[in-house]
Write a protein that binds this DNA or RNA. Structure first.
Lengths: 230, 230
DNA sequence: ATCAGGATTATGTATGCACATATTAATTGC
DNA sequence: GCAATTAATATGTGCATACATAATCCTGAT
């Protein structure tokens, strides 16, 4: 007979929803009911329905039952790629060049994003990422030296700052912000584009527990698109 | 005593990994071992470890055991918001205005994205999304009338085209592309920005099985950022 | 009519157990 | 020594059961 794996049950329920047997927003049978009709245990149905809930297909509420989401939320598992991997994925050779490195900069916007006062020492870094020696993206970064003191003496000739930090502080959370920005005179010169050109921009601030580790702004040289499936 | 919920177990294991007790790439104890040390059943440990694997923190292989991922993948569950919800989330009133609607346009780029020949009838639509009557985003869309014939006579005064389609064809997959683009004369005029302004742009093509349903380009009026946590 | 509070109910979770499955390790046969 | 077979092992999964928890429904008092 038909399989009673949680996998199979999940797909059978998904198929019914897709076929319109349970219209949008309506309540679907309970776990016990499904278990009886599929001839499996409630545990198995539970796992299948939990998976569908994780996917955003259904909503579950205690006592309220399970219902098909009124409007399915188009959500995607977006992987923020390392610049090196982005370049190498297109078959080009990756390199990077540290343009500026010092502790002089006291960028107010950066401190605000990291929620740090003026007393915390920050390392400022500007890096140009290259693909086959052509400008690919420009990165401005600030690193909290209280949180990562070793960064002050890190060798960034092999690993880029980002890769160094990921290895050193692997388990951090972060906030990402995507936007479009006009190229400033300085950035335009480095990326070899016209001033005012539309640059795809990624801002990221990274935290370990309550401490801000680093914040950065990555400006991609056009044409650049971030693609993914939903 | 400490809780033995799969939730608590998951966090305790996560804390150990974060603390560096199990370095990157190394194998961590097996389910049975954890169960004994935490005083819970193997089932509970299994569920906790499965959750950590879903998050990308650990990798699991039968017989191979569970190991900490060598480099954590920064991935995010990105929800593509409906424009209406984006506007209403900021407390403003949403409205939209259909600027152009017809079947005359034979946009080659749109047909290419949808992988359709010249014989398929397309409905072309240009919509301005407003927040408190101020331009918020401009949408250019093409709809495959073979796949969704009812769209030709849809009433788009209440629901926007996107919402109409989501209701009609709820379970579809798609490709999304994010980029930055300079505002054309026409788009600049509609959005009330300077021509050449940097616009955050979202392209999306939606499929039901093998049939392209719709493709669209959404240009956001600056300043706009797409924010999410990783 | 309205509100408080308890009964009801659907999902959430923990457990012990059995067996499945994938993969490595060991052993056997040549 | 090498290849094929077999054993060992860690995770994957299904099931029956029991209890937990949250939300709703219903009842009854005011």
């Amino acid at each position: 007979m038909t399989a009673t794996t949680h996998h199979a049950i999940r797909e059978r329920i998904r198929a019914r929803i897709k076929a319109g047997e349970y219209p949008l927003g309506t309540r679907i049978p309970g776990e016990a009911e499904f278990a009886a009709s599929f001839g499996c245990s409630r545990t198995t149905v539970n796992r299948a329905l939990r998976a569908l809930a994780d996917e955003g297909i259904v909503e579950r509420r205690r006592k309220g039952g399970t219902r098909v989401r009124p409007l399915p939320v188009p959500q995607a598992q977006l992987t923020i790629p390392l610049v090196r991997e982005q370049v190498e994925a297109t078959g080009r050779r990756y390199s990077h060049r540290v343009v500026v490195r010092g502790t002089a900069s006291t960028d107010a916007a950066a401190r605000r994003r990291m929620r740090l006062g003026d007393d915390v020492p920050l390392m400022h870094l500007e890096t140009l990422h290259l693909a086959d020696e052509q400008p690919f993206a420009f990165e401005r970064r600030w690193v909290n030296l209280w949180a990562v003191p070793a960064f002050a003496s890190a060798d960034l000739s092999v690993l880029s700052a980002n890769e160094w930090l990921v290895r050193e502080v692997p388990f951090s959370s972060g906030e990402v912000s995507l936007s479009a920005a006009a190229a400033s005179e300085q950035v335009a010169a480095v990326l070899r584009v016209e001033p005012g050109a539309a640059l795809f921009t990624l801002d990221r601030t990274t935290w370990l527990d309550e401490a801000a580790i680093t914040t950065m702004t990555l400006s991609y040289r056009p044409p650049y698109t971030l693609d993914f499936a939903i």
